[in-house]
């Protein structure tokens, strides 16, 4: 009576469109242009270690800023009445529905030389280049992925039983203790999924750095994009390393999350 059969088409689909492509990436990484086994692609790929580190660094900083900005907002949202909660969720989500490139493009127009912010600053006597540096890239990332941090945090915190907080209040805890003992531990799953949802795309994104950064700010995604069209083997190797790095990161993150959950 319990049917397993309906999942068969999807299993096939995953094999063809997920598994085989990954196997191809693997194959392509370990071969050279002529299809012979070789580590050449990897040695080439490691030539980009600085870009790699930079991407991880930018992703890390962007994730951290998102977390710092989003945590209070998620908390504030979770304490509102239901109708306000819904409206705020919608307000946070709407920019997410705008095309990704258009959102980045908006910042390009804002930050460009002789753009609105530049003009305003020069009125104040500040002359500086706003675009074409790492700061602008990080700004773009934060803007791009902030909702992905807010929503899981809010969802988790909204689920915290109000009775729990009242009980703690009743037992004589002050606000700080309530936060430390109840809200923070219970929001850990939200933090974990927020970090996942921001870090993964920001470490692997391409174009943001091309649009907002300078020549020296390109990220690993941009390198893949640039190389792949001419040298699929090296491109595959970089993509493989990126994927492995991200999965290792996710595994560590989830392990950390489990520990946290056990500890509290």
């Amino acid at each position: 009576m319990k049917l397993k059969r309906p999942s068969i088409p999807y299993i096939f689909w995953m094999v063809i469109f997920t598994l085989i492509p990954i196997v191809l990436i693997l194959y392509s990484s370990f071969t050279d242009r002529n299809g012979n086994f070789s580590f050449e692609s990897f040695s080439k790929a490691f030539g980009y270690y600085d870009v790699f580190l930079r991407s991880l660094w930018i992703a890390f900083i962007s994730t951290l800023i998102c977390l710092i900005l989003a945590y209070p907002l998620g908390y504030i949202m979770s304490r509102q009445k239901a109708s306000v909660q819904n409206t705020l969720t919608m307000v946070i989500m709407i920019p997410m529905w705008m095309n990704f490139l258009l959102r980045i493009y908006a910042w390009v127009t804002l930050l460009q030389n002789d753009g609105p912010i530049d003009i305003m600053l020069s009125f104040l006597g500040i002359h500086t280049t706003l675009i074409g540096n790492q700061g602008a890239v990080i700004l773009g990332m934060v803007y791009e992925y902030l909702p992905f941090m807010v929503l899981p945090l809010y969802t988790v915190m909204a689920k915290i039983d109000k009775g729990l907080i009242e009980a703690a209040d009743d037992l004589g805890s002050n606000k700080y203790i309530i936060f430390k003992k109840i809200i923070f531990p219970l929001s850990v799953p939200g933090i974990i999924s927020g970090i996942t949802m921001v870090f993964v795309p920001s470490a692997s994104t391409f174009l943001v750095a091309q649009y907002l950064g300078g020549v020296d700010d390109i990220m690993i995604g941009d390198v893949i994009d640039r190389i792949f069209w001419s040298d699929q083997n090296t491109g595959s190797a970089i993509a493989l390393i990126l994927m492995v790095a991200i999965f290792v990161f996710l595994i560590i993150l989830n392990f950390f999350g489990d520990e946290e959950a056990v500890a509290t």
Binding site: I22, S204, T205, F206, G221, I224, D225, A239
Partner: peptide, 8 residues
């Protein structure tokens, strides 16, 4: 990552 899905 999308880019890995894309290239693969």
């Amino acid at each position: 990552p999308d880019i890995v899905t894309g290239v693969s």
